[in-house]
C-alpha cells in the first residue's frame, strides 16, 4: 500500500506548484532585501522588514500602554492607585461577599499599619478571587486606632472609611489609603491627603468633607473602637475566621488552607457556620 492512487497526481502537482511558487516568492523577498540594502531601493515589503516593523510597533504599543496604565497608578496628585477594583456585585459596605457565605473572616486593621496594607493589597485579592466570588467566604473589615499614639491619623483615616462607605466607595478608598501609607504619624493621612485619596476613589469631595465632621461618623468610629477594645484587639491585623482568632500576616495559600478547613467544618456542621465574631 505504499503507492498512492493515480488520481492524487494532479493534487500532488498542484501542491508542488504551490511550493515552487512559495520558494520563488521567498527567494524574491530575499533578493529584494539584498537589492534594497545595497542600492537603497524601494522594495520595502520583505518579511524581514515586516517583522521589524511589527516588533517595533508592538513594543511601542505595549510601552505606551504600560506607561499609561501602570505609570498612571501614580497620579498627578502624587497618589498611587493600587489598581484593585472588586466587582460591585460582591461589595457590601465594609464587607465583601454574600451575607450567607459559610465562612466569615473579620479583619481588624489600622490604616497606618503596613502589615495590614500587605494583607489588604497582596493577600486579600487572592482570597476574593478564590473564595469570595464563589460565595464561600465573606470578608468584613473593621478599622481601629492602634498606632495613632495620641495623633489623629489612624482615627481620621478610619472615619474616612465610614464616609466612603456612605457613598459605596469603601473598598476603593480602603485600597487607596493602604496604598498611600507614608509611615506612622508623619502626616501621610492628613485631612487634605485623605480627601484627595477619597476623591481619587470616586467619592464626592463635599459630602466626604461634611461627613468627616459629622457626629454620625464620630459615633461609628467610637463604636468600632469600643468593640475592638472589648475583643482585646491590641495588634493589627487581627483576624477572626468563623470566630477563630489569628494575628499577623499569612500568605494567601496559608489562608486558603484555613478557609478550606473552615469550609469543611461548616459543611460538616452547618449550624456552626457563619461569623462567631465580633
Amino acid at each position: 500500500m505504499s503507492h498512492k492512487p493515480a488520481t492524487d497526481a494532479p493534487g500532488r502537482k498542484a501542491r508542488r506548484a504551490a511550493e515552487r511558487r512559495d520558494r520563488y516568492d521567498a527567494a524574491r523577498d530575499q533578493r529584494r532585501a539584498r537589492t534594497s540594502t545595497a542600492a537603497g531601493g524601494s522594495s520595502w515589503l520583505t518579511t524581514r522588514t515586516v517583522t521589524a516593523v511589527a516588533i517595533a510597533a508592538g513594543v511601542v504599543l505595549v510601552a505606551v500602554l504600560a506607561i499609561s496604565q501602570l505609570g498612571g497608578r501614580s497620579s498627578t496628585t502624587g497618589l498611587k492607585d493600587p489598581g484593585l477594583e472588586y466587582p460591585a456585585s460582591i461589595q457590601d459596605g465594609t464587607a465583601l461577599g454574600s451575607a450567607t457565605a459559610p465562612v466569615v473572616m473579620d479583619v481588624w486593621g489600622d490604616y497606618q499599619c503596613p502589615v495590614c496594607a500587605r494583607h489588604s493589597l497582596d493577600v486579600e485579592p487572592s482570597l476574593v478571587n478564590r473564595y469570595v466570588i464563589a460565595n464561600k467566604l465573606r470578608i468584613v473589615h473593621h478599622e481601629v486606632d492602634i498606632l495613632g499614639r495620641g495623633g489623629n491619623e489612624s482615627r481620621l483615616a478610619a472615619t474616612g472609611g465610614y464616609c466612603a462607605k456612605q457613598q459605596d466607595r469603601y473598598w476603593r478608598y480602603s485600597h487607596g489609603v493602604y496604598g498611600n501609607q507614608q509611615g506612622e504619624n508623619r502626616g501621610g493621612f492628613s485631612r487634605d491627603r485623605l480627601t484627595a485619596i477619597a476623591v481619587a476613589a470616586g467619592v464626592d469631595e463635599a459630602a466626604f468633607s461634611s461627613c468627616l465632621d459629622s457626629q454620625a461618623a464620630a459615633d461609628a468610629f467610637a463604636a468600632t473602637q469600643a468593640q475592638g477594645e472589648q475583643l482585646g484587639i491590641n495588634q493589627t491585623p487581627t483576624m477572626f475566621l468563623n470566630g477563630t482568632r489569628s494575628a499577623g500576616l499569612k500568605s494567601a495559600s496559608d489562608w486558603g488552607a484555613l478557609v478550606d478547613a473552615a469550609l469543611a467544618q461548616a459543611s460538616a456542621s452547618p449550624s456552626a457556620s457563619g461569623s462567631a465574631a465580633p
Binding site: R21, I55, V62
Partner: peptide, 22 residues
C-alpha cells in the same frame, strides 16, 4: 497563497504575541 496575506498575518501575530504577553 498570497504571500502579502501571510506577511500581514505574521505581523498581526507578532503584535498579538507582544500584547497578550503584556
Amino acid at each position: 497563497a498570497d504571500r502579502r496575506a501571510l506577511q500581514a498575518a505574521w505581523a498581526l501575530l507578532l503584535l498579538g504575541t507582544l500584547f497578550v504577553a503584556y
